[in-house]
């Protein structure tokens, strides 16, 4: 079985891309399953079930960062996919937290970015892009060729090793090269390990302390004018 983890900022086209991919993967004779991890609302699982009749699941991360939630549930998800005798496990995460990345070793990591998000976006999103294998750039139908080129150059600047697939996901234009890479990806490893280092420590905000101002917190803190430092024991 192969696993494909698909991340990206909200409404960049993750679902639209995966729908095009799943359609083609099924046409090739494979059995995919689909898992959606989102914060508090998602209907994608029903969409995939209705359109393709494949096994689907959804988890709400709620208080957890969706990427962290992904780490927690992925072990079970792989087991579930194996039980369903799946050839491919597709995971769509919300990827709201720009410090983490949901990709695991021995599986394919895909980040979906929209070309319309402005030429500076590739410089802003960190590990979600730099630790991915493939960056899918959607909505190329809406912008000039010149801006597509600039966007692409900036993706390469930010993440030299990432391969890029540009697509108008509405019509599946350009999706073939992505499908090819997915089909050629490795079988999932027996023990799953996160690809990147998660961000340092936990802060007191994360555990529910609501006061504003670094003076009221412990652990890793940061004032406006200084870098982060450790406060406390």
């Amino acid at each position: 079985m192969k696993a494909v983890i698909c991340a990206g900022p909200p409404t960049t086209g993750k679902t639209t891309v995966l729908k095009q991919v799943v359609k083609k993967v099924i046409r090739e004779g494979f059995h995919p399953v689909y898992l959606k991890v989102d914060v508090q609302y998602a209907v994608e699982d029903e969409l995939f079930k209705k359109e393709f009749g494949i096994p689907v699941k959804k988890v709400y991360s709620g208080e957890l960062c969706p990427d962290h939630c992904n780490v927690m549930v992925l072990g079970d998800a792989v087991e579930w996919a194996r039980k369903e005798k799946a050839d491919f496990l597709f995971v769509e995460t919300a990827g709201l937290c720009l410090r983490c990345s949901p990709y695991i070793e021995g599986s394919l990591g895909i980040v979906v970015l929209e070309a319309t998000s402005g030429m500076n976006l590739p410089r802003k999103i960190g590990p979600m892009l730099t630790l991915a294998d493939i960056a899918v750039v959607t909505k190329i139908d809406l912008i000039s060729q010149a801006e597509r080129e600039v966007f692409r150059a900036r993706v390469i600047d930010a993440a030299a090793g990432v391969s890029i697939c540009e697509t108008n996901a509405l019509y599946g234009i350009g999706i073939d090269s992505l499908v090819k890479k997915i089909l050629a990806s490795p079988e999932i490893a027996s023990s799953l390990v996160l690809r990147g280092n998660p961000p340092v420590g936990t802060c007191t905000v994360c555990v529910g302390k609501k006061e504003v101002g670094w003076q009221r917190h412990f652990g890793v803190v940061r004032p406006l004018e200084n870098d982060i430092f450790y406060r406390g024991e």
């Binding site: 597509r148 080129e149 692409r152 350009g174």
Partner: peptide
């Protein structure tokens, strides 16, 4: 060749539609 569709600066075709726009 595949590079035409993968890398816009190698793509010999420029397509200007009614919807094509500058966003920058």
């Amino acid at each position: 060749p595949e590079e035409f569709t993968n890398d816009p600066s190698k793509n010999p075709v420029a397509f200007i539609t009614q919807h094509t726009n500058f966003l920058s």
